[in-house]
Design a protein around this nucleic acid. Structure first.
Length: 492
RNA sequence: GGCCUCAUCGUCUAACGGUUAGGACGGCAGAUUUUCAAUCUGUAAAUCGGGGUUCGAUUCCCCGUGGGGCUACCA
């Protein structure tokens, strides 16, 4: 492996959700790695045992899979779809790295760069309550910072404790962010945060730094919510004397109410969009433009084009708002581009749930889908759009007459249409249209007077593809049969 | 409250300090048309406010305002 190889990780917590915001961060990380022919690593940050949701790792992996992202290293699926790991810097699941964190915490303890704290949660809550009451910012007051280490060690044998990082008491740090530029913070603003919890597991602030270092991460791409705790991470690198990776904080995606996108904005997990019939290419194409711009007017990108075009410099600072309407538009564009055959196989999952699916003949289904293709915004809408091709509609005498047309007049025109359609030798779109148009001429009526009833009788719908097109797909026999039945109903 | 941070049409965004502030979604109007779409054309719509710097600020600086993030033994 080349020395300056780019190594980027995506490090979600297995809390059961993988929403669009996560996916966008993931995309930026993967795109960056691919652009630089680097390594993309998936690490699982499960240090919070309480928030752990069973099956989350599989869920995360399934989301990645749907998006077409395969980790080069770290947690992944094996050929049988079981969760496994690849790479020589593992384990890649933090709960399995306990001993590693402990070792580094011990080092800091020995160097007096960290210390044990015996304050209970209740004690700390009380402390904060008093601070707030006194109009002070709530923060750990360092009450165990100067406890004698031997005394601390003695108490540690019989008492629960946490390990806290000794933040510098004064001084400022300035660090460079590839998106936000230089950010300066004051160490005095930071309290001594916990690095090892009383359950022996590390907090994010500690585990993240240790792992990024050990896994030789070169570029950290993460959500903007981490900027505030960045000084802690910087101080940790400094305490160990480790080189720092490049940092890129990316803006957060907001919901319509301008708050961080979350569950309460609706079904926002990535896989929920899969269920609703969105194509991963469309979701990616939409998502990547949330907070990033290629600086050109190109709007639709193939994955490889995205990889080629992606540049961290194109990332914006402001937080974008998620717009489901535009996502729908993008998905529609992708759907329309697909050959009908492919559209059908992609929609199979939804189609198969329809009551008529088992008796649907393949070629017929393809033609039916082709006729409604440009009307669909999601795959899930497809079965509903083609349903009338398979289930013969009950003639609706309210719907079939054109505007205020009298039913008897409608019946007369439909009969005329049937006469014409029966004469057709070769059932093609051109023949059908020619035949019906000549009947319109014969009846000396407006197009709509004849064509609306035909279409309505054939489809039973307010909205559908055009009369000629529907007739063509239905075939001569079925078309005439449906028209005859409509006539019968109109006359009764 | 404290710290950090952000700010161009309703939304996503573009604009070496010099543009009639551009594009896309959505809106509206029109064309097409048997309906709904799709498509095409046109149109309304923005530099948060106030000070500077400058011959000239969307762009640089300061203040204000507004939004957001963090302020946990969560990430």
């Amino acid at each position: 492996m080349a020395k300056n190889q780019v190594r980027v990780r995506f490090a979600p917590s297995p809390t059961g959700e993988m929403h669009l915001g996560n996916a966008r961060t993931l995309l930026f990380a993967v795109l960056f790695a691919r652009h630089h022919a680097g390594t993309f690593i998936l690490r699982i940050e499960d240090t919070d045992q309480e928030r752990l949701v069973k099956g989350s790792v599989e869920y995360i992996l399934k989301t990645l899979e749907w998006l077409g992202v395969t980790p080069d290293e770290g947690v992944c699926f094996d050929s049988k779809g079981q969760v496994t790991e690849t790479g020589d810097k593992g384990p890649y699941i933090q709960s399995q790295r306990r001993a590693i964190y402990q070792q580094y915490a011990d080092q800091l303890l020995a160097e007096s760069k960290a210390y044990r704290c015996f304050a209970t949660k209740e004690e700390l809550e009380l402390m904060r309550a008093e601070q707030v009451k006194a109009k002070q910012p709530p923060r750990y007051d360092g009450r165990y910072r100067d406890l004698d280490p031997t005394e601390a060690e003695r108490r540690a044998a019989g008492e629960p404790f946490v390990i806290r990082f000794k933040m510098p008491l004064q001084g400022k740090v300035t660090a460079h962010d590839l998106v936000y530029g230089d950010i300066t913070s004051d160490y005095a603003e930071q309290d001594d945060h916990i690095i090892i919890k009383s359950d022996g597991l590390p907090t994010y602030h500690f585990a993240n730094v240790i792992d990024d270092h050990l896994m030789q991460i070169t570029h950290v791409i993460r959500g903007q919510e981490w900027i505030a705790s960045w000084p802690r991470h910087l101080a940790t690198y400094a305490a160990f004397g480790w080189p720092m990776p490049e940092y890129t904080h990316v803006p957060l995606i907001f919901g319509p109410d301008k708050a961080k996108l979350s569950k309460r904005h609706g079904a926002k997990t990535v896989l929920a969009y899969k269920e609703e019939g969105y194509l991963p290419e469309a979701v990616i194409n939409y998502l990547v433009f949330l907070g990033w711009s290629p600086k050109t007017t190109q709007e639709f990108f193939l994955w490889d084009e995205l990889v080629a075009a992606f540049d961290l410099k194109g990332i914006n600072k402001a937080n974008p708002i998620f717009d489901p309407v535009k996502l729908g538009f993008v998905n529609g564009v992708y759907l329309r581009q697909l050959p009908a055959e492919q559209l059908m196989s992609k929609a199979e999952e939804w189609l198969a749930r329809a009551d008529w699916f088992d008796r649907a003949e393949r070629d017929y289904l393809v033609k039916a889908i082709a006729s409604v293709q440009e009307r669909a915004k999601t795959l899930a809408e497809l079965p509903g759009l083609v349903e009338f091709y398979f289930n013969r509609p009950e003639p609706d005498v309210k719907l079939i007459p054109f505007k205020t047309q009298a039913p008897t007049e409608t019946a007369r025109l439909l009969e005329l249409a049937v006469v014409g359609l029966k004469e057709i030798k070769e059932w093609t779109l051109i023949e059908i249209e020619a035949q019906l148009r000549s009947r319109i001429e014969q009846a000396a009526c407006q197009n709509g007077e004849l064509l609306w009833p035909v279409r309505a009788a054939l489809t039973g719908r307010e909205a559908s593809p055009g009369a000629f097109e529907v007739a063509e797909v239905l075939g001569q026999t079925e078309t005439i049969l449906r028209l005859d039945e409509a006539v019968k109903q109109l006359k009764s």
